[in-house]
Design a protein around this nucleic acid. Sequence first.
DNA 1: GGCCTGAGTTGAAGAACTAAACTCACGAAG
DNA 2: CTTCGTGAGTTTAGTTCTTCAACTCAGGCC
Lengths: 163, 163
Amino acid sequence: METRRIDPVNCSVARALSVVGERWSLLIVREALDGARRFGEFHSRLGIARNLLATRLETLVTAGVMRRVPYQEPGDRQRFAYELTEQGRALRPTLVALLEWGDTYLADPQGPSVIVRHRPADDASSCDEPVKVVLECAAGHSHLAPEDVCRTPGPGARFLESS
Amino acid sequence: METRRIDPVNCSVARALSVVGERWSLLIVREALDGARRFGEFHSRLGIARNLLATRLETLVTAGVMRRVPYQEPGDRQRFAYELTEQGRALRPTLVALLEWGDTYLADPQGPSVIVRHRPADDASSCDEPVKVVLECAAGHSHLAPEDVCRTPGPGARFLESS
DNA sequence: GGCCTGAGTTGAAGAACTAAACTCACGAAG
DNA sequence: CTTCGTGAGTTTAGTTCTTCAACTCAGGCC
């Protein structure tokens, strides 16, 4: 029998990248996690072209990563802001993983420009220690090395016959 | 005093994305983590255009994510294969995080097509339980929610005066 | 009314991506 | 020694995506 391979196109990584894999998407999400809400904030923080920002925000809203909400500053007309949905906030681990990778291998000589810290919103138990992303299995083994994990087919796997 | 904001361009996420943020880069790394080594393997698994694959592999090699190594099949001439460096393998947590996000929010109705399992290379302690990515702070608080972390300036931070 | 501001939209030029045909180096077959 | 087959790219032409700059649009303010 031929060895079977998991179809690499029917994969959540590919689907995830089709939503947040475009050039500015993850940076927009990062700024949103950091508190950006308005069109102009994203524009001036990132320096992204305005039309592209409009397109990206629309894509992210359509994908359910962000939400377009009306707001009104006193003495100003109604405008729209963009905020993350729960789905969007769930990208935090991905961004922390990328940040860590960048810090480790592409570091600024000065050191990292950003440190992610444990600081709950209610600030009651202000811990403030740096946060890392770790791989952990369901049996409780933690801090797995990249070599200690492998991909296996799941229930939705399609296969390709290797030719 | 004006509130100071961390310069969002001088950031490891942005630097990381400049290396692996292009359309196919992370999928190439994923296939490499799954054992792909040769030009044709990447090409047929991903369906990426050949010229683009050549360009991406060159970019990844230049960036230190992959390495070009000569190999020779018996009765064939010498060719080149591409394998991940340690820097490339370190992208595993990023890919697991993306996979998890995709599984959670963009799932195939059949269920996930890929499950990442704890299975060390030497297979001695074959645990095989599914692996997740978790946020953990240096004080040992684990399984932090996205809301429980925040970004703070590090030693290499540049600031922008908000205008 | 005329001016200002934030939030987009439009349009032209340049860069990136796709697809398919082409080249190249070698080993094997005749 | 000539031809054929194969893996690994390269070339080229066409399409799509990004960028940049200029323009529009709606309301508030003078």
